[in-house]
Design a protein around this nucleic acid. Structure first.
Lengths: 234, 234
DNA sequence: TCAAAAGTGTTGTAGGTACACCCATGG
DNA sequence: CCATGGGTGTACCTACAACACTTTTGA
């Protein structure tokens, strides 16, 4: 029985939640988009395998990349080549100027998640279902953890952090209440003391992630609207 | 690479959170206690494999048994026989008069989780760590889902349900506020109209699980005290 | 002086905790 | 009538949504 890892890497680009996909160079599903991933090596644990595949196929990586196990998919005929069980991982990346398109010479690219969830873009294997799980997990974890900061660069403004919630949840959030809430939560954010001057408007204070990993009290959100082509202001 | 399933079955017996363990009949770890589980068959998905192993080894089963995937453990040397990856499942069972000790003739028995977590009882492989994950998951899910009812028989009293929270979390809960809270949550409980007369005291109303699977607003619990030998009244 | 973005103050309300109090049964 | 457990009412407090208002910049 073969065991692989597949990674759902999420980021926010152009005010949309996007997922990292690679074009398959070999059969089956040659030319089709798929999640980055591959076989676990003989002396390798699953998480290192996920990090390695990500680095090889997409040039994304580093210790700082947030990575957690999602779940395992083991349906008997999910891979036409035979019995392949895959351990899926969820990664969250900031929208860095990342040279996507890795050393493995395979074309990697970002794709809006709504295009995958709506099946406008068809992925190889059962990868669309895996992306669905990843998005669900990310949406839930924003509620009760400080995961949102994983979408942000090392220093960021309050508005950037708020956009994470708005884009991932597909809702609009009152900037003023949000500000109070996250600054009151212990160890969520650390002010750098610096300010960023934008093209227009008052300069925004800059923050860095704090040591907290859970958020109490949690961000409450009554329901998840469906994932749609970017319209958080409805 | 071999793939197995292992199941953490939790229940409440004698006002303690207990886990179902089987005594290993073969090497490695012969005679040692372990989680029920075994190899996935060629044409079998992981969850059916978990249900089958549970039925074979512990005579526990049925469609009604709550079962969810926990996570996958794939450390290279977790099994001395060679490379074995295991998909761990979490099951929750009511304290039925279950004939534990299954058709497979292997001795199955309940063990208080604190004895496992404290390492007073040493389990085979990395199963102690898996139990730890299962307990953590159950404790978290009581907060924001209706999972607590899975510990109860089909009809139950308010006090039985409250004992679930008290035992799993190791805290004491105000009976009066708890009553209001769960009766206000939509579709959590359905009153049967019946009452149960106990040895002493006013008869308690009987309830059945409602259709709700999530709990809103969630049960809040500021912190998890460590799992100890049964003392929820501290 | 205006537009735009950042940030504060205030008010109404929902839901939480703590606890006094009443209800129904067996002995 | 008392002990025991079931269930309601109420006061107080915290946290959140809504929204008016002030601050700081570039053009």
């Amino acid at each position: 029985m073969a065991v692989t890892v597949d990674v759902v890497v999420l980021t926010i680009r152009d005010d949309e939640l996007q997922v990292l996909l690679v074009e398959r160079g070999v059969e089956p599903f040659r030319g089709r988009l798929a999640l980055p991933g591959g076989f676990i090596r003989a002396e390798e644990d699953a998480e290192p395998a996920a990090r390695r595949e990500l680095a090889e196929e997409t040039a994304l990586g580093g210790e700082s990349l947030y990575l957690e196990q999602l779940r395992t998919f083991a349906a008997p005929h999910r891979d036409p080549r035979g019995r392949v069980v895959t351990v899926a991982y969820l990664a969250i990346a900031p929208d860095l100027p990342v040279p996507v398109g890795g050393t493995d010479a395979r074309a990697a690219r970002w794709q809006p998640v709504w295009s995958v969830l709506s099946r406008d873009v068809e992925l190889a294997f059962d990868h669309a279902g895996i992306v669905e799980h990843g998005v669900d997990r990310a949406r839930s974890k924003l509620e009760y953890t400080t995961l949102a900061t994983a979408f942000c660069p090392e220093v960021f403004t309050m508005t950037e952090l708020r956009r994470v919630y708005e884009v991932v949840w597909g809702v609009s959030i009152d900037a003023r209440n949000f500000h109070r809430k996250v600054t009151n939560a212990d160890d969520f954010l650390e002010p750098t003391g610096e300010r960023r001057v934008l093209e227009t408007g008052r300069p925004a204070a800059l923050y860095r992630r704090g040591p907290a990993r859970t958020l109490f009290p949690p961000m409450l959100r009554t329901a998840f609207p469906p994932v749609l082509p970017s319209d958080p202001d409805s």
